[in-house]
């Protein structure tokens, strides 16, 4: 006699694996969140493109400035990229140094305090940075900019003549650098803290000084984190509106002269300043410039991804 007949219900083997309810809910909500992001992104893109089309098809005379779209948006793109680039060049090395100091040099108590202060900096509204830039930094930097013109004037960047108000591209760049410093510092700090002890000890046991250990173990490990942080900062600098709008009075020119009084504005600042007074095709033109900013940001992020992935084999993740 077979024993299994004592069980009243016979289970038919299912070809589908059993999945817990909780597991299904989690998988569903995670997928949903991912899809939602894509929908929002696609929605923004569709809105920008649809609203920008009238500006692309309009005749040059109807556009603000009365010339073609590229002439209008070109200087704005240039100003956006230049100000963000200055900010990034100033902020990234500084942020990496601050993060290294917090994680590897400062005594624990000081490090914690510093960490909080840096995080607080990130919480200051951008309008406050803008006010600081225009009221404090601009006048204070006048002597420095005069010095740049006198001694480094042969470099086109510092050709001058120095703006009397101090409201220059250089001041914008420095203000933006202060704004993006906390985010780059915070991301770098988190990554540096995760450097495996194993690799730090490997370097130390070979007779590395603390700085050599950082160069051998911490920085290579944190490289992708530094790049991610820098790109987050760059994203903020590219899209920064109020600080740029307050400090610069843009004049639609393309110049590398960082310390003179005529400067290109940035896309976001220009939209903020022009939007209230615009109607009809002018609004579409502003949205077209917004579309350009959207594309620039996407490109910047893709390039950052590409840089990070290029040496994935060596990343330490395997």
């Amino acid at each position: 006699m077979s024993a299994p007949t004592t069980t009243p219900t016979t289970v038919t083997p299912s070809t589908r694996p059993v999945r817990q309810l909780g597991d299904r809910i989690f998988a569903g909500s995670a997928t949903g969140a991912g899809v939602l992001i894509l929908i929002v992104l696609a929605g923004v893109a569709v809105f920008l493109i649809a609203q920008a089309i009238p500006a692309f098809t309009a005749s040059p005379e109807e556009l603000p400035g009365g010339r073609n779209l590229a002439v209008y948006i070109g200087p704005l793109v240039f100003g956006t990229l230049l100000s963000a680039l200055i900010a990034l060049v100033i902020a990234t090395p500084l942020a990496v140094c601050v993060a290294l100091f917090i994680t590897h040099y400062a005594p624990r108590r000081l490090a914690q305090g510093l960490g909080y202060v840096v995080d607080l900096l990130a919480a200051v509204p951008s309008i406050v940075y803008g006010l600081w830039g225009v009221a404090v930094l601009a006048p204070a930097s006048l002597p420095f900019m005069t010095w740049l013109q006198d001694y480094l004037g042969w470099i086109p960047l510092f050709a001058g003549p120095v703006s009397a108000t101090g409201r220059t591209m250089l001041v914008v760049g420095v203000t933006l650098a202060v704004m993006i410093l906390p985010i780059i510092t915070a991301v770098s700090r988190e990554v540096f803290l995760q450097t495996p002890k194993l690799h730090e000890e490997a370097a130390l046991a070979l007779g590395a000084t603390r700085w050599e250990m950082i160069r051998m173990a911490v920085l290579p490990f944190g490289r992708s984190g530094i790049i991610s942080g820098a790109m987050l900062g760059l994203g903020r600098a590219l899209g920064e509106t109020m600080a740029v709008a307050i400090i610069l009075s843009g004049s639609g020119i393309i110049t590398f002269n960082l310390i003179s009084s005529s400067n290109p504005s940035s896309i976001a600042a220009n939209i903020a300043l022009q939007f209230p007074d615009s109607t009809g095709v002018a609004v579409n033109t502003l949205i077209a410039s917004g579309l350009v900013l959207f594309v620039i940001t996407l490109l910047v992020n893709s390039i950052a991804r590409w840089i990070i992935n290029r040496r994935r084999e060596f990343s330490g993740a395997n």
């Binding site: 000890e201 490997a202 290579p220 490990f221 395997n318």
Partner: peptide
């Protein structure tokens, strides 16, 4: 101590080659 470690090498419990180096 840095000089001491250059004279006295060490191999650890878990293998720890630098992952970012060839």
């Amino acid at each position: 101590p840095v000089g001491v470690r250059r004279q006295i090498g060490m191999v650890f419990q878990r293998p720890n080659p630098f992952p970012t180096m060839s």
